[in-house]
Write a protein that binds this DNA or RNA. Structure first.
Lengths: 318, 318
DNA sequence: TTGAAAGCGCTAACAA
DNA sequence: TTGTTAGCGCTTTCAA
């Protein structure tokens, strides 16, 4: 059996409560006693039993995060932010990809063993989210709901920058390949788009979705394709390349998110940089605040256009 | 306060022990009683408190996984496998990226709240791993240690296939850009290489590492560059492209792992397919077996060459 | 087949 | 500043 608080107490010649206090409320113990206890703790390699602790405090010291698709490098980046900040706050992180099971089921399962959860780009409807938020402290990422904390990335502004950039290059015939219609990010992008492009879709926000989108976009005769995200844009580039269409000479392409591969592909992708890691960190901050009894809070993080080689002047003919 | 086992007992007019048994040892309760209890459980929405349960059973029902770099799409894929299998087994998954803190510290922290951990491509030395494995049931991924379960991907064979492929294309002057020297995968790849290529490195197993590797490789005059992994190969492609060197006409390039982007880049990358998701699932199987008292086990999964457009005939001149 | 009761290891009143 | 004690919610002997 592992070493318990009683072993420490015995060897340090104090009561168990003193040991407990020395560990979790240092101010309430005489410094000398505390040192002695800590020494014994180290000597014995004592680790408080988390189950016992959380049984009484009702806190687990754990956070959960649910992401829609880990294969999209956007989410590992968020996860990194969450993880590093959680680590600083002394929390461990539970993780779930919502392709494994329904989002609400996952959150409910998690709720049993975490103090709060970060829910990324949820596709649940408002009522469902509200119900979950009622059960568990929650922070939404790229999604809003009154009374629930959220971290937003300014998709509207990002998309507006994209359209402006294309307009400056002389593109008048633009087409937008839309993402999931329930998605908050998609809807915000539409706001930024302000009807300055034709709309196609919805498409899966993946490479394959982009391939399909490109196919449809080609028949419109547009000179610029605006993809919902980078993964789709990569699919677009791939399809155009197999069709022998040059980018950006014949058609310009833009993505969204600035995932790592946006800079590595050919041609490098004009896209919108999202503050992913920071969003992860902020989400944890908000969650921790909330757990400490603070109010629900919304934080919007800025985005910015990253012009690269996949966009160029519109072709002169048409 | 949440509903407890006593509430259920009271309403079902049985003792708490009967409720407990109805839930975790159905055989020990009369069917009729059991049905009645289950009904009340559903009616009240009762969920057993995990902390209380694990306090007494010593089990948490959680698994942990430590990966070296979530930015490498290889690991999200493994994670997916781990997660889906764990979900089937009724376990939740803790996750850690070892860039947040030292591997052994992470494992130790995790050990406190999981029943076992999957340690991926650890760079710790044998003694350290052995010590950890002594504390917590553990499964190693792409790493071996006597007495510890592990899931291996056959890197040696994969690399042998790469070399053979290049040889068939007429490349006699090949260079290998090595990964981390402590890495088991790297060493296995060397075995498969069998000195049939010059060795450079070590390099960071990242895009930037690949850029640096390409720089050094160019001065050797080799006609084929074998990268430790796809991420590096992507860096190689990028550097060659900025230098105006054509792939595969001037130089052939290969990667390793078959990450998603290997198929999306330009030209598509010849690489070695790794059974990532399956490895994740198998790792969980092994861990679960171990927890049930089974013996340590080693499982090696096959790899296979995926020829694409980044490799071609060696140039005739030299 | 069921119930009573003793803890699992810890924290948090309450007393001293 | 420290110690005593009563549980947190559950499982598991042991008896009935």
């Amino acid at each position: 059996m592992a070493v318990t608080i009683r072993d420490v107490a015995r060897q340090a010649r104090v009561s168990v409560s003193t040991v407990s206090r020395a560990l979790s409320a240092p101010g309430l113990v005489k410094e000398a006693t505390r040192q002695r206890v800590l020494e014994v703790v180290r000597g014995l390699g004592y680790e408080p039993n988390r189950a016992a602790r959380s049984l009484i405090t009702g806190r687990t010291g754990n956070l959960g995060i649910v992401v829609p698709d880990l294969e999209n490098p956007f989410y590992p980046a968020v996860l990194r932010g969450v993880q590093s900040r959680a680590h600083e706050a002394g929390c461990a992180v539970f993780f779930c990809d919502s392709r494994v099971a329904a989002e609400d089921a996952l959150v409910r399962t998690m709720a049993a063993q975490v103090d709060g959860v970060v829910l990324c780009a949820s596709l649940l409807d408002d009522d469902q989210v509200a119900e979950l938020a009622d059960t568990t402290p929650m922070v939404l990422l790229n999604r809003t709901l009154p009374g629930v904390s959220s971290v937003l990335m300014d998709s509207a502004s990002g998309m507006a920058q994209v359209v402006e950039h294309l307009a400056e290059l002389g593109h008048t015939d633009r087409v937008y390949l839309g993402g999931p219609e329930q998605s908050w990010s998609h809807r915000r992008r539409l706001v930024g788009l302000a009807d300055r492009a034709r709309r196609l879709g919805p498409f899966e926000p993946t490479f394959d979705g982009g391939v399909e989108g490109a196919r449809q976009a080609l028949s419109t005769g547009a000179t610029a394709i605006i993809a919902y995200n980078d993964l789709m844009a990569l699919g677009v580039l791939s399809h155009l390349s197999t069709r022998g269409i040059r980018v950006p000479e014949d058609i310009s392409v833009t993505g969204f998110d600035n995932i790592l591969y946006a800079a590595m592909c050919h041609p490098p992708l004009t896209t919108v940089a999202m503050p992913t890691e920071e969003a992860g960190r902020v989400a944890v901050d908000l969650l921790v605040d909330r757990l400490a009894g603070g109010p629900a809070e919304c934080r919007e993080l800025p985005t910015r256009l990253v012009p690269r080689a996949s966009t160029g002047k519109a072709p002169m003919f048409s």
